[in-house]
Design a protein around this nucleic acid. Structure first.
Lengths: 103, 103
DNA sequence: AACGAGTTGACAATTTGTGTCAAATGTAAT
DNA sequence: ATTACATTTGACACAAATTGTCAACTCGTT
Protein backbone atom coordinates (compact mmCIF):
# COMPACT_ATOMS: atom_id res chain seq x y z
CA UNK A 1 0.00 0.00 0.00
CA UNK A 2 1.77 3.12 -1.25
CA UNK A 3 1.30 6.62 0.06
CA UNK A 4 1.15 9.61 -2.24
CA UNK A 5 4.52 10.60 -0.87
CA UNK A 6 6.04 7.28 -1.85
CA UNK A 7 4.51 7.48 -5.29
CA UNK A 8 6.03 10.91 -5.80
CA UNK A 9 9.43 9.90 -4.53
CA UNK A 10 9.52 6.76 -6.65
CA UNK A 11 8.60 8.70 -9.76
CA UNK A 12 11.01 11.50 -9.03
CA UNK A 13 13.87 9.09 -8.60
CA UNK A 14 12.83 7.18 -11.67
CA UNK A 15 13.25 10.41 -13.61
CA UNK A 16 16.51 11.14 -11.83
CA UNK A 17 15.28 14.46 -10.51
CA UNK A 18 16.54 16.20 -7.39
CA UNK A 19 14.10 17.50 -4.84
CA UNK A 20 14.91 21.05 -5.78
CA UNK A 21 14.41 20.32 -9.47
CA UNK A 22 10.99 18.82 -9.02
CA UNK A 23 10.15 21.46 -6.43
CA UNK A 24 10.97 24.13 -8.99
CA UNK A 25 8.65 22.53 -11.52
CA UNK A 26 5.95 22.38 -8.91
CA UNK A 27 6.70 25.92 -7.82
CA UNK A 28 7.05 25.04 -4.17
CA UNK A 29 9.89 25.20 -1.69
CA UNK A 30 12.16 22.16 -1.52
CA UNK A 31 11.32 21.82 2.14
CA UNK A 32 7.67 21.33 1.36
CA UNK A 33 8.26 18.72 -1.28
CA UNK A 34 10.53 16.87 1.12
CA UNK A 35 7.77 16.87 3.68
CA UNK A 36 5.19 15.75 1.16
CA UNK A 37 7.31 12.79 0.11
CA UNK A 38 7.66 11.71 3.70
CA UNK A 39 3.92 12.21 4.39
CA UNK A 40 4.63 15.02 6.82
CA UNK A 41 2.48 17.34 4.74
CA UNK A 42 -0.27 16.79 2.25
CA UNK A 43 0.03 18.12 -1.28
CA UNK A 44 -2.62 20.48 -2.56
CA UNK A 45 -4.93 19.44 -5.34
CA UNK A 46 -3.10 21.72 -7.75
CA UNK A 47 0.17 20.04 -6.88
CA UNK A 48 -1.38 16.65 -7.51
CA UNK A 49 -2.40 17.67 -11.02
CA UNK A 50 0.98 19.16 -11.77
CA UNK A 51 2.64 15.96 -10.58
CA UNK A 52 0.39 13.83 -12.73
CA UNK A 53 1.35 15.91 -15.74
CA UNK A 54 5.06 15.89 -14.95
CA UNK A 55 5.16 12.15 -14.44
CA UNK A 56 2.57 11.41 -17.12
CA UNK A 57 0.36 9.62 -14.65
CA UNK A 58 -3.37 9.37 -14.96
CA UNK A 59 -4.83 12.46 -13.28
CA UNK A 60 -7.88 10.65 -11.97
CA UNK A 61 -5.82 7.81 -10.57
CA UNK A 62 -3.53 10.17 -8.68
CA UNK A 63 -6.49 12.21 -7.51
CA UNK A 64 -8.12 9.09 -6.15
CA UNK A 65 -4.96 8.20 -4.27
CA UNK A 66 -4.80 11.68 -2.87
CA UNK A 67 -8.42 11.97 -1.82
CA UNK A 68 -8.65 8.46 -0.43
CA UNK A 69 -5.52 8.99 1.62
CA UNK A 70 -6.94 12.17 3.06
CA UNK A 71 -10.16 10.41 3.98
CA UNK A 72 -8.41 7.33 5.33
CA UNK A 73 -6.28 9.42 7.68
CA UNK A 74 -9.32 11.38 8.72
CA UNK A 75 -11.10 8.36 10.12
CA UNK A 76 -8.52 5.60 10.43
CA UNK A 77 -8.52 5.71 14.21
CA UNK A 78 -12.28 5.54 14.56
CA UNK A 79 -13.44 2.07 15.20
CA UNK A 80 -16.49 2.76 13.09
CA UNK A 81 -14.28 3.64 10.15
CA UNK A 82 -15.34 0.92 7.77
CA UNK A 83 -19.04 1.27 8.39
CA UNK A 84 -18.64 5.03 8.04
CA UNK A 85 -17.24 4.59 4.55
CA UNK A 86 -20.08 2.28 3.57
CA UNK A 87 -22.64 4.83 4.69
CA UNK A 88 -20.68 7.59 2.98
CA UNK A 89 -21.00 5.64 -0.25
CA UNK A 90 -24.76 5.56 0.10
CA UNK A 91 -24.85 9.26 0.84
CA UNK A 92 -22.68 10.04 -2.15
CA UNK A 93 -24.99 8.03 -4.38
CA UNK A 94 -27.93 9.89 -2.96
CA UNK A 95 -26.31 13.30 -3.39
CA UNK A 96 -25.35 12.52 -6.95
CA UNK A 97 -28.82 11.36 -7.89
CA UNK A 98 -30.29 14.41 -6.18
CA UNK A 99 -27.99 16.63 -8.20
CA UNK A 100 -29.28 15.10 -11.39
CA UNK A 101 -32.79 16.02 -10.43
CA UNK A 102 -33.78 12.51 -9.49
CA UNK A 103 -35.35 13.49 -6.17
CA UNK B 1 -31.71 9.74 3.24
CA UNK B 2 -31.69 11.86 6.38
CA UNK B 3 -29.14 14.50 7.26
CA UNK B 4 -27.80 14.90 10.77
CA UNK B 5 -29.73 18.13 10.94
CA UNK B 6 -32.98 16.39 10.11
CA UNK B 7 -32.28 13.69 12.66
CA UNK B 8 -31.72 16.33 15.31
CA UNK B 9 -34.80 18.31 14.43
CA UNK B 10 -36.99 15.23 14.34
CA UNK B 11 -35.78 14.09 17.72
CA UNK B 12 -36.06 17.55 19.23
CA UNK B 13 -39.63 17.89 18.10
CA UNK B 14 -40.43 14.40 19.24
CA UNK B 15 -39.36 15.47 22.71
CA UNK B 16 -41.25 18.74 22.37
CA UNK B 17 -38.17 20.83 22.99
CA UNK B 18 -37.66 24.36 21.76
CA UNK B 19 -34.48 25.28 19.95
CA UNK B 20 -33.35 27.34 22.91
CA UNK B 21 -34.01 24.51 25.32
CA UNK B 22 -31.99 21.99 23.40
CA UNK B 23 -29.35 24.61 22.68
CA UNK B 24 -29.03 25.21 26.42
CA UNK B 25 -28.53 21.50 27.04
CA UNK B 26 -25.90 21.43 24.33
CA UNK B 27 -24.35 24.62 25.64
CA UNK B 28 -24.44 26.38 22.30
CA UNK B 29 -26.15 29.46 20.98
CA UNK B 30 -29.63 28.99 19.59
CA UNK B 31 -28.45 30.42 16.29
CA UNK B 32 -25.92 27.64 15.90
CA UNK B 33 -28.37 24.89 16.64
CA UNK B 34 -30.77 26.40 14.15
CA UNK B 35 -28.05 26.34 11.55
CA UNK B 36 -27.06 22.79 12.38
CA UNK B 37 -30.61 21.56 11.96
CA UNK B 38 -30.82 23.18 8.55
CA UNK B 39 -27.39 21.83 7.56
CA UNK B 40 -25.95 25.30 7.35
CA UNK B 41 -23.30 24.35 9.89
CA UNK B 42 -21.85 21.07 11.03
CA UNK B 43 -22.04 20.01 14.64
CA UNK B 44 -18.82 19.26 16.46
CA UNK B 45 -18.04 15.76 17.61
CA UNK B 46 -18.74 16.74 21.21
CA UNK B 47 -22.14 18.01 20.23
CA UNK B 48 -22.87 14.74 18.48
CA UNK B 49 -22.17 12.80 21.65
CA UNK B 50 -24.24 15.14 23.78
CA UNK B 51 -27.09 14.76 21.34
CA UNK B 52 -26.87 11.01 21.37
CA UNK B 53 -27.07 11.08 25.15
CA UNK B 54 -29.94 13.54 25.25
CA UNK B 55 -32.00 11.62 22.72
CA UNK B 56 -30.84 8.21 23.90
CA UNK B 57 -29.54 7.32 20.49
CA UNK B 58 -26.69 4.94 19.86
CA UNK B 59 -23.50 6.98 19.99
CA UNK B 60 -21.77 4.98 17.28
CA UNK B 61 -24.74 5.20 14.98
CA UNK B 62 -24.93 8.95 15.27
CA UNK B 63 -21.18 9.25 14.93
CA UNK B 64 -21.32 7.24 11.73
CA UNK B 65 -24.01 9.51 10.36
CA UNK B 66 -21.95 12.53 11.26
CA UNK B 67 -18.65 11.31 9.87
CA UNK B 68 -20.13 9.85 6.72
CA UNK B 69 -21.99 13.06 6.01
CA UNK B 70 -18.81 15.03 6.41
CA UNK B 71 -16.98 12.72 4.02
CA UNK B 72 -19.83 12.61 1.54
CA UNK B 73 -19.94 16.37 1.27
CA UNK B 74 -16.18 16.48 0.96
CA UNK B 75 -16.13 14.46 -2.23
CA UNK B 76 -19.67 14.40 -3.55
CA UNK B 77 -18.87 16.62 -6.48
CA UNK B 78 -15.84 14.65 -7.60
CA UNK B 79 -16.68 12.27 -10.33
CA UNK B 80 -14.22 9.80 -8.86
CA UNK B 81 -16.12 9.87 -5.58
CA UNK B 82 -17.25 6.27 -5.44
CA UNK B 83 -13.92 4.79 -6.46
CA UNK B 84 -12.24 7.10 -3.96
CA UNK B 85 -14.30 5.61 -1.17
CA UNK B 86 -13.47 2.08 -2.25
CA UNK B 87 -9.76 2.87 -2.18
CA UNK B 88 -10.17 4.66 1.14
CA UNK B 89 -11.62 1.44 2.54
CA UNK B 90 -8.55 -0.49 1.49
CA UNK B 91 -6.29 2.14 2.99
CA UNK B 92 -8.20 2.10 6.26
CA UNK B 93 -7.90 -1.66 6.43
CA UNK B 94 -4.19 -1.36 5.77
CA UNK B 95 -3.71 1.36 8.37
CA UNK B 96 -5.61 -0.63 10.95
CA UNK B 97 -3.61 -3.75 10.37
CA UNK B 98 -0.40 -1.73 10.46
CA UNK B 99 -1.46 -0.27 13.78
CA UNK B 100 -1.88 -3.75 15.18
CA UNK B 101 1.67 -4.58 14.25
CA UNK B 102 0.75 -6.67 11.24
CA UNK B 103 3.16 -5.00 8.85
C1' DA C 1 -49.28 45.91 18.62
C1' DA C 2 -46.72 42.65 21.39
C1' DC C 3 -44.84 38.30 22.13
C1' DG C 4 -42.19 34.09 21.45
C1' DA C 5 -39.82 30.94 18.21
C1' DG C 6 -36.82 30.55 14.74
C1' DT C 7 -33.73 32.56 11.12
C1' DT C 8 -30.21 35.40 9.14
C1' DG C 9 -26.00 37.94 8.50
C1' DA C 10 -22.07 40.57 10.15
C1' DC C 11 -18.32 40.07 12.85
C1' DA C 12 -14.68 38.10 16.24
C1' DA C 13 -11.99 34.31 17.93
C1' DT C 14 -9.84 30.12 17.19
C1' DT C 15 -7.93 26.44 14.70
C1' DT C 16 -5.88 24.41 10.77
C1' DG C 17 -3.33 24.55 6.45
C1' DT C 18 0.28 26.35 3.66
C1' DG C 19 4.49 28.69 2.65
C1' DT C 20 9.21 30.78 3.82
C1' DC C 21 13.48 30.59 5.63
C1' DA C 22 17.71 29.31 7.93
C1' DA C 23 20.04 26.00 10.44
C1' DA C 24 21.06 21.10 10.99
C1' DT C 25 22.03 16.59 9.22
C1' DG C 26 23.60 13.27 6.04
C1' DT C 27 26.67 11.66 2.26
C1' DA C 28 30.15 11.38 -1.13
C1' DA C 29 34.44 13.03 -3.10
C1' DT C 30 38.86 14.94 -2.71
C1' DA D 1 38.75 16.24 7.79
C1' DT D 2 37.11 19.72 4.83
C1' DT D 3 34.24 20.90 1.12
C1' DA D 4 30.14 20.59 -1.60
C1' DC D 5 25.69 19.35 -2.33
C1' DA D 6 21.11 17.06 -1.19
C1' DT D 7 17.84 16.50 2.08
C1' DT D 8 15.60 17.20 6.55
C1' DT D 9 13.99 19.77 10.44
C1' DG D 10 11.88 23.31 13.09
C1' DA D 11 10.53 28.05 14.02
C1' DC D 12 7.83 31.43 12.34
C1' DA D 13 4.44 34.16 9.29
C1' DC D 14 0.47 34.36 6.62
C1' DA D 15 -3.92 32.80 4.81
C1' DA D 16 -8.03 30.11 4.86
C1' DA D 17 -11.50 27.57 7.14
C1' DT D 18 -14.23 26.62 11.41
C1' DT D 19 -16.65 27.87 15.23
C1' DG D 20 -18.85 31.06 18.25
C1' DT D 21 -21.29 35.65 19.54
C1' DC D 22 -24.60 38.89 18.92
C1' DA D 23 -28.23 41.78 17.26
C1' DA D 24 -31.63 42.46 13.98
C1' DC D 25 -35.03 40.34 11.32
C1' DT D 26 -39.19 37.33 9.87
C1' DC D 27 -43.15 34.80 10.84
C1' DG D 28 -47.05 33.23 13.22
C1' DT D 29 -50.13 33.79 17.33
C1' DT D 30 -52.74 36.23 20.61
Amino acid sequence: MQTIGQIIRTNRERKGLLLRQLAAQLDVDTAILSKIERSERKPTREQIFKLADIFKLDRDELLIQYLSEKIAYEIADEDVATRTLKVAEQKVRYLKSAKHGKV
